[in-house]
Amino acid sequence: MALATLIEGPADTPNLLPGAKLLIRPGLPAMGSLGDAELDRVVARDSEGELASGLTSTRHYGAHGEAREEAVRIFVESFAPPPRMVIFGAVDFTAALVRAAKLLGYRVTVCDARPVFATTQRFPLADDVVNDWPDRHLSVVGPSLGASDVICVLTHDPKFDVPAIVSAVATNAGYIGAMGSRKTTDKRNVRLREAGLTDEQVERVMGPIGIDIGARTPEETAISIVAEIIALRTGRPVASLRDTDGALHRR
């Protein structure tokens, strides 16, 4: 939903008071009023657009919602659901990555086919711990993933990670990363092509996962992964391990 607040209005118009509010819910009638029915209608229409892109900003209108006028200023705050991170593989690195992801506000799912490892006791901060095969889980949640959502494949076991990545590249997730050494990554890329992925699809996968900061511990690796996720979203050039060569860890 989006909340529109009138923050400045013309001094001679007593119905347009600072603090007036309109709550916009997609597919439902708006609640409240900014003080003018036509202004309400225009702001509700524009806010649905802002909501789709998760934008929070101030817009200008005329007293009755006219575009290109500046009589009133409306602050529109979008309340989009938090972005999601789906982590495949319930390993030590997963616990650290869950913590880093929660720090950044992700809704985190840990998925592993092995019930002994995929437990809420091991990942108390995860929002969901799912006992399932990665490809089966993605067949359920994959279609709802979008550009702000991320998939991290930490299994580094071809039995799990090839089907997981094949399903991941079928989603619209904004980031897909896969853990493993350079040797593991090379072998996996061969298997992914054998499984029918195009070069373009294989190149979408950040592997070895993370940026080149010499991370060694699970916690340091988690920082290198979330840093890569941020940089990919903002389009800043960073030394991703996928694009560098040499040892992953400092010796």
């Binding site: 929070t56 900003s57 101030t58 200023r73 602050f75 705050e77």
Partner: peptide, 15 residues
């Protein structure tokens, strides 16, 4: 109090 607009360099975004 909510940030509604930032011009130039600012530490926090609108919202």
């Amino acid at each position: 109090a909510r940030v509604v607009d930032v011009e130039g360099s600012g530490p926090r975004d609108p919202g």
